[in-house]
Simulated assay, not measured.
Amino acid sequence: MTRGLKPSTITPGTSPVMTVPPPPSYLSKDAKAEWRRVAPILILERKVLTVADMGALENYCIALGTMRELHRLLQAEGHVLPTGKRHPASTALLQTQQQQLRAAAELGLTPSARSRAALSEAAADDEDFL
């Protein structure tokens, strides 16, 4: 279960971000690429990000970048070490995937988060008719 406000319940007009800023310089290559892919959608298309939300976007991009780096490491080194023990990156990858999914849901970047937002909007529209 995801906690926090859903994109459909965010009050617009509280310091909205109007232009897509460049990704922070310290992000990894993968994280920067995700920022460039997702920030325009959230800022220009959906118009849901405020200045206060930029940390959430950064968190999402860092998690996604880390997830991809860990995946590449495991592809190169394998999931099992020569000692027969599980590679520590396997656990880190799982944790990062979970973090990335939570952050994506907070930003409305998953199909289920978008469908919940659509249902919430439809329910609000129905209440307007009562």
Rank of each mutant, 00 (worst) to 15 (best):
L107R: 00
Q99G: 02
P16H: 02
R102G: 06
Q97H: 08
R68H: 11
T19F: 06
L49H: 02
D128L: 15
A52H: 14
A105L: 01
G78T: 08
L119T: 10
K29N: 06
R68C: 04
P7M: 04
E77Y: 10
L73N: 07
K6P: 02
T66C: 04
A118D: 12
P22K: 11
K6F: 08
T83A: 15
S8T: 07
E106I: 00
Q98N: 11
H87Y: 07
P88R: 10
R102N: 10
E58A: 06
K32D: 04
Q75C: 07
Q97C: 14
R46V: 02
R46H: 09
P24W: 14
D128Y: 13
A89V: 09
D126K: 15
T11I: 15
E69S: 13
L57A: 00
K6G: 05
A89F: 09
P40M: 00
H87E: 08
T83C: 11
T91F: 01
T50R: 14
A89S: 14
T2S: 13
Q99T: 13
K47Q: 15
F129G: 10
L74Q: 01
T9N: 09
T66F: 02
P16A: 01
P23Y: 08
I10L: 15
T14G: 05
L73A: 12
D128G: 13
L73P: 03
L94D: 07
N59P: 00
M18C: 03
A113Y: 04
T9Q: 15
V51Q: 10
L70P: 05
A33H: 05
A63T: 05
P23F: 09
V80F: 08
L107N: 01
L64M: 12
S115G: 00
E34M: 13
L119P: 00
L70Q: 10
V48I: 15
Q98V: 11
V80S: 09
L70C: 06
R102Q: 06
L5F: 07
A117V: 07
P16K: 03
T110I: 02
L119D: 08
G13P: 08
H79V: 14
P12T: 05
T83W: 05
T14K: 12
L64W: 07
K32N: 07
A113F: 04
L73M: 08
L49P: 03
S90K: 03
T50E: 11
D30Q: 12
E127H: 01
A122G: 11
T50M: 08
T96K: 02
K32S: 12
H79K: 15
E106S: 03
L27Y: 04
S115N: 07
T91L: 03
G78R: 02
P21R: 11
E77M: 07
E121Q: 13
E45G: 04
C61Q: 02
A76F: 09
S25T: 12
A76L: 15
S28K: 01
T11W: 11
R72K: 15
D30L: 03
H87P: 01
V38M: 06
R116K: 15
E127T: 02
T50S: 14
A123F: 03
A122S: 14
L101Y: 06
M1A: 10
E34S: 11
L49Y: 01
L93I: 07
A39P: 06
I41G: 02
L64N: 05
D125S: 14
D53K: 06
T50C: 12
I41E: 08
P22V: 04
S15A: 13
P111G: 02
F129S: 13
T9I: 13
R114C: 07
